[in-house]
Amino acid sequence: MLRRKHMKKFVKTAGGMLFACLMCGGISAKPKKTTLTMLISRDQPMSGIQAVCDSAEKSLGIKVEMEVTSSGIDLDNMVKTRLASGDVPDLIVYNTGSLLAPLDPQNNFINLSGESFSPRINKAFRDSASIDGQLYAIPFGLSQAGAVMYNKKVYKKYGLSVPKTWKQFIANCDVLRKNGVTAIIGTFKDSWTSQVLFLGDSYNVCKAVPDFPAQFEKGNMKYATTPAALRSWQKLADTTSYYNKDYLASTVSDGCDKLASGEGAHYIMLTDNVLPQIASLYPDKIDDIGVFAIPGDTAEDNGITVWMPSGIYGSKNSRHVEAIKKFLNYYMSDAGLDVYCSALDVISGPMPVNNYTP
C-alpha cells in the first residue's frame, strides 16, 4: 500500500513537471523566426524575389521584410547615406560593376567567397560583384540585354524590317514619325534609363576598341577622345527628336504600357525591366514584342550587349549574419532558383549560375 502511494505521488509530481515544461516551452516549442530587412528599388522585378522570400519563411523560419524605394540616383544616394549612418538593412539589392567599389564593400558587406554556393556563380557575374578577388553578392535574377524592344505589329503595319545599321534604324524612325507614331519611347523621369542607349552600345565600342573599358577605368581613355565611344553619344543625340512628348515625365512602367499598346514603336531599355512587366500586365501582348541589338554602322557585324543582374548584398555589421548567409545559400540552391524562376511570367535571359537552366 505504501509503495502504491509513493508511485501515485511520483506520477502526480512528474505530471506537474511535464505540465510546467510545456507551459514554459521546454518541449515541442517552435523555433523563433528571424526577421531580415531588405532594401530594393521599385524597378526590380518583384515576383521571383517575393516567391523566394515566402518559401524561405516556410522552410527556414527566416522572414524577409522588403523596403521598396526609388531607383537611379535616388537609390545610389540612399544606399551611400544608409551605409555612412549605420542605418543599414540586412540585405540590399543593388548594382554590380563599377558602382560597387565606392560602397567600401570590404567594410560594409559580407565576404561570400568561402560560401558553398560560390563556385556555382558564373564568372562574368563573379567579376562584376567582386573587389580584389573577394565576392560580395549573389545574382538577384536573370541576365539581360541592353537592346531595342519593338512592337512587331507596328512594324508590320508600316512595312518595316529589323534594322542592321544605325542609319536604317533612324530611317524606320522617320517613317513612324511621319505616320504619327511615337518612334522611340523615352522614360527619363527614371533618369537612369537615359544611359541605356550609350551603355547598350558597348558591343560596338568594344568591337572597335577591345580594351576601352579597362583603359577607361584607368583614366587612359575617354568617351570624348575615343571616336568609337563618342559615336555612342552621337547616337543618343540622334534620338532626341523622336521621343514621346512626355518623355521627361514618363517612368519605366509608362514605357511598358506605351510599347505594349503600340503607342510607341521602340523602347531602348534593359530586357528584364520590360518583358516581365508586359508579360504580367498584358499577357496577350507579350508575343507582339521583339528585341534587336542597338545597331552599329555596318550590317556585317551585329552583336548585343549583355548586362549582369543586380546583386543581393548582406550587411557585414548585421546582428543576423548567419541568417543572412542561410538565406543566400537557399536562394542559390536549385530549390531556391526553381522557386524564383517558376514565379516569373517570362524567362527573359539566362541565370548567371553554372549548370543551371531555368
Results as ranks from 00 to 15, higher is better:
24 C>M: 14
24 C>P: 06
24 C>Y: 11
24 C>G: 12
25 G>P: 02
25 G>T: 09
26 G>I: 09
26 G>R: 13
26 G>F: 13
27 I>L: 13
27 I>H: 00
27 I>N: 01
29 A>V: 06
29 A>P: 04
29 A>N: 10
29 A>G: 05
30 K>L: 09
31 P>A: 15
33 K>M: 01
33 K>P: 03
33 K>N: 07
33 K>L: 09
34 T>I: 15
34 T>G: 03
35 T>P: 01
35 T>H: 00
35 T>M: 01
35 T>V: 15
35 T>L: 00
36 L>C: 07
36 L>Q: 06
37 T>R: 05
37 T>H: 01
38 M>G: 02
38 M>S: 06
38 M>R: 03
39 L>Q: 07
39 L>S: 08
40 I>D: 08
40 I>T: 02
41 S>Q: 14
42 R>E: 13
42 R>S: 10
42 R>A: 07
43 D>Y: 10
43 D>T: 01
44 Q>F: 12
44 Q>H: 11
44 Q>T: 09
44 Q>Y: 13
45 P>R: 00
47 S>A: 15
47 S>Q: 15
48 G>F: 10
49 I>E: 14
49 I>C: 12
50 Q>W: 06
51 A>N: 05
51 A>W: 05
51 A>H: 04
52 V>R: 02
52 V>P: 01
52 V>H: 01
53 C>R: 11
53 C>H: 12
53 C>L: 06
53 C>T: 11
54 D>G: 05
55 S>M: 08
56 A>G: 04
56 A>C: 07
56 A>V: 03
57 E>A: 13
58 K>C: 02
58 K>L: 04
58 K>R: 14
60 L>T: 11
61 G>I: 01
61 G>L: 04
61 G>N: 00
62 I>T: 00
63 K>Y: 05
63 K>R: 06
63 K>G: 00
64 V>P: 01
65 E>H: 04
65 E>N: 08
65 E>D: 13
66 M>C: 06
67 E>W: 04
68 V>K: 07
69 T>K: 07
69 T>F: 06
71 S>Y: 03
72 G>S: 10
72 G>T: 10
72 G>W: 02
74 D>C: 05
75 L>R: 08
75 L>A: 09
75 L>G: 06
76 D>G: 07
77 N>W: 09
77 N>F: 10
78 M>R: 13
79 V>C: 03
79 V>Y: 06
79 V>P: 05
80 K>S: 14
80 K>A: 15
